[in-house]
Design a protein around this nucleic acid. Structure first.
Lengths: 194, 194
DNA sequence: ATAATAACCAACCGCTCGGTATGTTGCAAG
DNA sequence: CTTGCAACATACCGAGCGGTTGGTTATTAT
């Protein structure tokens, strides 16, 4: 990787971390510059504006990360159990600070969807892709599931409950509440089976 | 009501609206001043800082509103149906822009819980009160519910799903997704019955 | 070897923000 | 009648922000 590309990737990675921790608006370019030990000129050579940097973080960091994380648990033989295992393992392995930090996608959705159309459309697309993954997984084992289910609706419900769980744990600064909601979510998911 | 108290209430009401629409940080004092047609001196006569104004909005506007909204559907004979009716009626009656605007409590939780301890504790208290309302309602009809339920966990799950539903509708700018998640949530709630 | 361009730096700009200092008005008690 | 304080108004401050400008160094193509 060329030096320039290295610089760019470093900016993206640091920006992704800052945006995850403090949100897009509260992320200061000067902090990114300090952490990367570069000048403002360097940053503006690689990105035309803060907004473009935000979009790049979304597309080049968050999106591949997200698809990667969700694909594996849904690709197993029994996606219902795969999903539940994934959720419980995640709650167990995540540090308290990670839980409190929330999901990058949900954070950006709350912060930016009503403010910037570029972010909104990217978030929407990501959510639809994620929902599609769940729907396909459910369809794969539909013969083992209750008959009256609306898969897309179920998929969005699962995502909603998960996002709500992270939101709740932000006020309690505690994994306990998060774990409870995930536990209840797993009960719901397992009850999808016949 | 005295003129001064009138001014104070006006500030609170306008600030509550601005914070609901744009969040706490993005709410500019100058906008509040313009809408209220008062000077900065007037605002700082009634509130010592923007933070204190935010706390006052939470305690004097959001809290009573919230408790009022949730108490009625949970106080009826069958709180399960009361809750489902409440949720579906809400989705039907809320305008699209209201849905997209989100829940003030959840918005503040996402924005401020990780940033300011004063907000965090107030939000936490409000969520616990809300959960308590649900738990008490469930206990009231526990003989009609499935035996193995953990009421507190169920309460938080319901709140989480609801919050997640508003989050999802922010990216779609659409009531449809919100309605779907609420519909699935009602299926879950009704399935709490034996 | 040199010209051109990529990659980067330092200094500065305008703007908005929350907050403050000082001044003015009006009512109400003594 | 005046003294005093509540209830405002006006003007200003410093800080931090995203972004721009003009210049410098390093790399690459001819």
């Amino acid at each position: 990787m060329s030096d320039a590309e290295q610089t760019r990737q470093n900016i993206l990675s640091v920006a992704a971390d800052e945006i995850h921790q403090h949100g897009y608006k509260a992320t200061s370019l000067s902090v990114i510059l300090n952490r990367c030990e570069i000048s403002k000129g360097a940053l503006y050579h690689h990105f035309t504006s803060k907004m473009e940097l935000g979009y790049a973080v979304f597309e080049e960091v968050y999106t591949p990360m997200f698809l990667g994380v969700w694909q594996s648990p849904l690709s197993v033989e029994d996606p219902i159990e795969g999903l539940c295992d994934f959720l419980t393992t995640m709650t167990e392995e995540m540090s308290c600070s990670e839980v409190v930090c929330g999901c990058p996608l949900n954070n950006l959705c709350e912060e930016m969807a009503n403010v910037d159309e570029g972010f909104r459309l990217r978030i929407l697309s990501m959510q639809e892709q994620l929902n599609q993954l769940i729907v396909e997984a459910l369809e794969k084992v539909s013969e083992n599931l209750r008959a009256e289910l609306a898969f897309s609706q179920v998929g969005y419900f699962i995502v909603a409950a998960l996002n709500g769980a992270t939101s709740l744990s932000k006020s309690s600064r505690n994994k306990a509440l998060f774990q409870q909601v995930i536990a209840e979510l797993c009960l719901y998911i397992r009850a999808l089976k016949k």
